[in-house]
């Protein structure tokens, strides 16, 4: 357990002494701010629309601002995850520091979980920036806070499973660029699977849509925790970490 923490700390530190963490934060702040602005603009436009006013029901800020923002954030995450995970193992393999870790009295799984945990924490701290935007909503409106928490839980779960997959891909190569590009391709694929699902009603179509990462996020964005989604994210995380462990083992055998 303490070994995991030793590695996690080391990894977090190297994220924060390099420009990666700050670059991602700046990127995210910019994009997230833009989407927030867009969502608020639409909300204002619609709510002042006489047609809508006639319905006599105030527009729900959760539905009109927070939900679309969270959906967008979950997609932005797909672009950031490769940047976070690409160096995780590829760099250590390239510089040979993996030799230090692999000859220390710690388990492979402790190395993997420690690194993954650091990636998750970094991801969370980047997501934290979006809280600044939401704070504005809480100051000027009265949104329900429970769906917001659920949405963040969803983002965390989604991030966790993609980061696990990214760790695996980073473990397969010495080249950070390849690791990043590969992870990006997989993230993209898991995203666009959802598009097919919109038109497919066959069993196969449903299966495909079940695999989509963003598809499972929709419920979370609505503030609904569905066990099916939680199970999907958790099992995909375990699967990713398991694959990483296997790859570490097999690389050692083939070396």
């Amino acid at each position: 357990m303490s070994n995991i923490w030793i590695l996690c700390k080391k990894e977090l530190r190297s994220y924060f002494v390099s420009p990666i963490a700050y670059g991602l934060m700046a990127f995210f702040a910019l994009i997230c701010g833009y989407f927030f602005y867009a969502a608020v603009a639409i909300f204002v436009l619609r709510s002042t629309d006489p047609m809508m006013m006639q319905r006599g029901m105030p527009m729900d800020i959760n539905e009109w601002v927070i939900r679309p923002l969270m959906m967008n954030v979950s997609v932005i995450g797909l672009f950031m995850i490769p940047m976070i995970t690409m160096r995780l193992f590829a760099e250590e393999k390239k510089t040979g520091t993996i030799e230090l870790l692999a000859t220390s009295p710690i388990l492979d799984i402790e190395i993997i979980v420690g690194k993954w945990l650091a990636a998750v924490l970094l991801y969370l701290s980047i997501l934290g920036i979006s809280a600044v935007n939401l704070a504005v909503v809480f100051i000027y409106g009265k949104p329900d806070w429970k769906p917001v928490l659920v949405a963040y839980l969803g983002l965390l779960l989604q991030g966790g499973c993609l980061l696990a997959i990214g760790s695996f891909i980073s473990n397969c190569t010495k080249n950070q660029i390849i690791a990043g590009a590969g992870t990006f391709a997989v993230c993209l694929l898991l995203w666009v699977l959802d598009w097919v699902a919109a038109y497919e009603t066959t069993t196969f179509g449903k299966m495909i849509s079940y695999l989509s990462v963003t598809g499972h996020f929709e419920n979370f964005a609505k503030g609904v925790i569905d066990t099916k989604d939680v199970v999907y994210y958790l099992s995909l995380s375990f699967f990713g970490l398991f694959l990483t462990a296997r790859s570490m083992e097999s690389l050692r055998w083939r070396a």
């Binding site: 070994n3 030793i6 080391k10 530190r13 190297s14 002494v17 390099s18 510089t95 040979g96 520091t97 993996i98 030799e99 230090l100 870790l101 220390s104 009295p105 710690i106």
Partner: peptide
């Protein structure tokens, strides 16, 4: 090739290895 982390300070690195070991 000594397995060093270039972003660490010497003392920090030796300490990190000590913890690992």
């Amino acid at each position: 090739t000594p397995p060093l982390y270039p972003e660490m300070e010497v003392r920090e690195y030796v300490e990190f290895v000590g913890r690992l070991k």
